[in-house]
Design a protein around this nucleic acid. Sequence first.
DNA 1: ATCCGGATCGCCT
DNA 2: GGCGATCCGGATG
Length: 196
Amino acid sequence: MKPGRIVPASFYARDTELVAREMLGMLLQYRTERGTASGMIVETEAYVGEHDAACHAAAGLTTRTAPLYERAGIAYVYFIYGMYWCFNAVTRPSGQPSAALVRAIEPVEGIDLMRRRRPHARRDRDLTNGPGKLCMALGITGGVNGQSLQRGSLVIRDYAAISDSAVAVTPRIGIRHAADWPLRWLVRDNEFVSRG
DNA sequence: ATCCGGATCGCCT
DNA sequence: GGCGATCCGGATG
């Protein structure tokens, strides 16, 4: 399998549920001075707008949430629990501030670089099986917050096709509000999925 | 100025 | 399965 074309911004300007589903099988690729690392997206969640209490946009437009109000196809990277970064692709269906969180990837390029960035991972599956872990493995930090996912060092590319029969949908993980909404998508039986 | 909760992870039992 | 780490954004006074 070879990395394909960079996904255009128009892809992200649609319903977040659709974007989250179709991001499965795409390649998240980051180039840094240390080299290129990438992985196939195997788990995503949708955060669908101001009416979604679990979405950061529920707080309205603030310094932190500003990227969600800009445009589809840019990165929204936030810091959590004092230690970790999480990566989202901004979606803008009908102008709604929303995003798709990438929760897990399967390493494709630069696995040795990922191992160096994740010295405590005991097995390779522990490199990228969580939203904080994959950001560490790729080297993603707040420095790319708000950056284009078409023109910059961080891009999403076409990669593999995932059939509907290989996809499972569940409630989102680790949230308090709207915890029963089925807005998490994952590739069945993929060992890099964070849970379930 | 101060307080609190959080889209997590890794280590412990 | 439980808990501590560690800090930022937002809210309140």
